[in-house]
Simulated scan of single mutants.
Amino acid sequence: MADKLTGRTVAFLVAPEGVEQVELTEPWKAVENAGGVPTLVSTDSGTLQGFNHLDKADTFTVDTTVDAVTAADFDALVLPGGVANPDYLRTVSDAVDFVKGFFEAGKPVAVICHGPWTLVEADVLRGRRITSWPSVRTDITNAGGNWVDEEVVTCTAGPNTLVSSRNPDDLPAFCEQLVGVIAESGDPVVPSPS
């Protein structure tokens, strides 16, 4: 179990502030515990501010910026939630293009809570079955997605596999599913020489 993701690098795309901390840290630990390499990608270098709902939590060091990488550099993408996090990301064209690249390349994407707002902006939800925090339902539906209220949803009706969950209570099922989907997604990306 500890080596399911050996050789795989997983991007975690997060805004400079507003991410729901547990929706970043629990999937991150799941990737690490399965032998994968999580990479913190943001719109700005330096550190980012996590939140526990509306209260400031810990800060995290950004590994790379979204303008310096593409989907080709990673095996999968995780989009944590938090209200402000995806709302900001959807306004940054490099972030939206980065997300869209995973769909175009057929690579797994896992998203939780308010995270689908970035997917709405990337226009990648048409015909896709997905769940989220209830307030995102109308946006998903308007973007052509099929919203359902389930703990975890895995949709393969598109160019890639899309894993989604509703909120932090769903994290155990979400983390298990995202690790399984990434493990089954084909050969790991071979890093380009520096």
Results as ranks from 00 to 15, higher is better:
residue 1 M to V: 00
residue 1 M to K: 13
residue 1 M to S: 15
residue 2 A to G: 12
residue 3 D to A: 15
residue 4 K to C: 05
residue 5 L to Y: 02
residue 8 R to S: 00
residue 9 T to P: 05
residue 12 F to T: 08
residue 13 L to V: 11
residue 14 V to F: 08
residue 16 P to V: 02
residue 18 G to E: 14
residue 21 Q to F: 04
residue 21 Q to Y: 03
residue 24 L to Y: 07
residue 28 W to I: 04
residue 29 K to W: 08
residue 29 K to T: 09
residue 30 A to N: 11
residue 31 V to A: 03
residue 33 N to V: 03
residue 33 N to H: 11
residue 33 N to Y: 00
residue 34 A to E: 06
residue 34 A to Y: 02
residue 34 A to I: 02
residue 35 G to V: 09
residue 35 G to A: 10
residue 36 G to W: 03
residue 37 V to W: 01
residue 38 P to S: 11
residue 39 T to R: 13
residue 40 L to A: 04
residue 44 D to G: 01
residue 44 D to V: 10
residue 45 S to R: 04
residue 46 G to D: 06
residue 46 G to H: 11
residue 47 T to D: 13
residue 47 T to Q: 14
residue 47 T to S: 15
residue 47 T to E: 15
residue 48 L to T: 04
residue 48 L to D: 06
residue 49 Q to Y: 07
residue 50 G to I: 03
residue 51 F to H: 10
residue 51 F to L: 13
residue 52 N to H: 13
residue 54 L to C: 07
residue 59 T to S: 15
residue 59 T to K: 13
residue 65 T to Q: 07
residue 67 D to P: 01
residue 69 V to C: 08
residue 69 V to Q: 13
residue 71 A to D: 14
residue 71 A to R: 01
residue 73 D to W: 07
residue 73 D to A: 10
residue 78 V to S: 05
residue 80 P to G: 02
residue 82 G to I: 01
residue 82 G to Q: 09
residue 83 V to E: 15
residue 85 N to E: 10
residue 85 N to P: 06
residue 87 D to F: 01
residue 87 D to T: 13
residue 88 Y to T: 11
residue 91 T to V: 02
residue 94 D to F: 00
residue 94 D to K: 13
residue 97 D to K: 08
residue 97 D to F: 02
residue 97 D to W: 01
residue 98 F to S: 03
residue 99 V to A: 14
residue 102 F to S: 12
residue 105 A to I: 05
residue 107 K to Y: 08
residue 111 V to K: 04
residue 113 C to L: 09
residue 114 H to E: 12
residue 115 G to R: 07
residue 116 P to Y: 11
residue 117 W to Y: 07
residue 119 L to R: 04
residue 121 E to M: 07
residue 122 A to F: 02
residue 122 A to S: 07
residue 126 R to N: 15
residue 128 R to H: 13
residue 129 R to N: 14
residue 134 P to H: 02
residue 134 P to G: 07
residue 135 S to A: 14
residue 137 R to P: 00
residue 141 T to V: 15
residue 141 T to I: 08
residue 145 G to A: 07
residue 146 N to I: 09
residue 150 E to N: 05
residue 150 E to K: 05
residue 152 V to R: 03
residue 153 V to E: 03
residue 155 C to H: 03
residue 156 T to P: 00
residue 162 L to E: 10
residue 169 D to H: 06
residue 169 D to L: 10
residue 173 A to E: 12
residue 175 C to K: 05
residue 176 E to V: 06
residue 179 V to P: 07
residue 181 V to R: 04
residue 183 A to M: 08
residue 183 A to I: 00
residue 185 S to C: 02
residue 186 G to A: 12
residue 187 D to S: 14
residue 187 D to K: 12
residue 188 P to R: 06
residue 188 P to E: 10
residue 189 V to H: 03
residue 192 S to R: 15
residue 192 S to D: 12
residue 194 S to I: 14
